[in-house]
Amino acid sequence: MAADTGETPADGFGRVSRTKDVAFRLLALAATLIGIVSLAALLLNVAVDAVGWLDWQFLTNPPHPDPYEAGFLPALVGSIAIMLMIALVTFPLGVGAAVYLEEYADDGYLTRFIQLNIANLAGVPSVVYGLLGLGLFVGLFNIGYGTVLAAAFTIALLILPIVIISAQEAIRAVPDSQRQASYGMGATKWQTIRNVVLPRAMPGIMTGTILALGRAIGETAPLIMIAAPTTVFGLPNSFFSKVSAMPLQIYNWASYPQTEFQYGVVAAGVVTLLVVLLTINSIAIVIRNRYQQRT
């Protein structure tokens, strides 16, 4: 390149080539964008394919072998039922564990062990949690193959580490001066936690829990392992109803060879699942933003 030389001090300091620098910068930028662009292209494809298939009839019908009759309602309702149960289970347990680790536990051996264990649990493959659910909830506790409760408990254990870790971060973000003020007033530890720490950490805890629920709603493998039926025609009406879920129904439909399923019904199911997921995550972001403005 022209700018490459210039050894003579009389011309100033000369120039050092930036070619490699610029090329590398562009390469790194391309790498940053490639995943995002690929996903965007795939999402565009599926959205286009879903047009004409994602309609009121699809959302309100039960599944059907005829693609023009097939609907998503039992899976949609099943997913939401499972998710609500998961929220009921993980929220108190996750917050309780986080409160213990942040407010009560000393920095001893046991605490570090629990902490490491939680980090490790967050990395256990979801299919293994499915086996846990199969052995524990279906086998030992006899809750029944593929019931709402078995599904919810299994996935609850799966997202519990994520809920705990995010709740811990939210509790850690409460300034110590707030705790000091409370203790200084003669408050007990529990009073301080209930009146000062938890109210202040709550938006962060909610955000983390809701995001974890977003992860829960996409989980498929654990449901397969606890033998949740891939296709259910009725709506769940008790904790012990057999239940399907959106991702499970999508998995089932994806194996249908007809084009109408592959590029129609499944696309509609995928878009529905993603819209529900997007809604959940938006709620979490709204909570976070509102809270950030407040402080």
């Binding site: 001066s177 000091q180 003020a181 007033m185 003669g186 408050a187 009146n195």
Partner: peptide, 28 residues
């Protein structure tokens, strides 16, 4: 500590109403 009040280096009111801040000690 219920016999001894404490005021800290930088103001640390709770993110509550003025009334609830003052009433905090009475409450706990």
């Amino acid at each position: 500590r219920r016999k001894i009040g404490m005021v800290f280096q930088s103001p640390n009111p709770f993110p509550k109403s003025i009334r609830d801040n003052v009433a905090y000690g009475l409450k706990v």
